[in-house]
Design a protein around this nucleic acid. Structure first.
Lengths: 164, 164
DNA sequence: GTAACTACACCGACCAGTCGGTACATTTAC
DNA sequence: GTAAATGTACCGACTGGTCGGTGTAGTTAC
């Protein structure tokens, strides 16, 4: 999964070579490039969702909104997620069909039926995590290790709940 | 500036038509597509920087780190910035040369020589603002007006300074 | 007269998608 | 049991279209 040009810049030839098959073989499995990209996005998101579940450490249905947001931000900001993958996936912003898997993830992990007082802090925590992801992917963060640790800790605290 | 495919997907023909000039005329001014894209990015960033200065309401050199971050987050999260432009610019993540104008903006507005205790909160405020931008551009925020106002107010408070 | 174009034809690289064909395993028919 | 038919996975050459970029002759404005 090299492709420095994002998922949109990935060519069928390159994808085939990467996968160790011929272009024809690749096309046999994915009728169109869009289907291929969708499969990539879905695969990566499924992996993250798995990581979030592990991070949760308990069944999804038994977790509170705060715990879910924390699992989300930790996976997004953590080393679990490869920088390269993130850069590759940014393109999905342009393609409605590729956005759908994202929306699903966000709906499952971040939506809360009756938003309480600390819902705002949780939303800010989520947005900051997304922002850090973007900064990492674009290599515009340049925080040193200490600062980064402090930032993720602060995000964690925002996700935590009522206490400030 | 329509181009739903981002700045990378913009064609010279489309850009010329959009600008109301011929392709030849466009090429006359921008020797390559990369130069054209760079000019677009620089133009938009210059516009935002202008908006940030207005938001600051005082000379840049007299402002504190907190005031600068607030100006930054307000412009980024505010209606000043058009959603479409944001979606178009996301592509610059893939192109080192297009990233440079961004880095300049971030360096000027967010860097602080001696980071104090509340630098972490300011960083989180910046990241949350960027996250909100990304969510808007990808249409994955779906916060209602009240929630959005509360979020931006919270980001404002984080940028503010020491008080929690 | 020169800078800033327009209009238009064209080239070459790149790339998604097509298509004829191969190899091989499994099933069906007799 | 074996021959024919079917299905699945895959190859790689080719096609058709797109797009960045070039070239050139003519036009407008100052």
């Amino acid at each position: 999964m090299a492709g420095r040009r994002g998922i949109g810049g990935l060519t069928l030839d390159a994808a085939a070579q990467e996968a160790g098959v011929s272009k024809g073989g690749l096309v046999y499995h994915f009728a169109s490039k869009e289907q291929l990209m969708l499969a990539v996005v879905e695969h990566l998101i499924a992996g993250w969702e798995q990581a979030m579940l592990t991070e949760l450490g308990k069944p999804f249905d038994e977790a509170t909104a705060a715990e879910r947001v924390r699992a989300y931000t930790r996976v997004i900001t953590g080393l679990t997620t490869s920088r390269a993958d993130l850069a590759i996936l940014i393109d999905s912003v342009h393609e409605e069909s590729l956005l759908e898997p994202w929306r699903g993830l966000l709906r499952r992990w971040l939506e809360e039926a009756p938003p309480d007082v600390s819902a705002v802090d949780r939303a800010v925590a989520r947005l900051a995590a997304d922002g850090l992801w973007l900064a990492d992917a674009s290599d515009t963060s340049n925080y040193d290790a200490d600062m980064r640790a402090a930032i993720t800790a602060r995000i964690d605290r925002l996700a935590e709940g009522p206490a400030l």
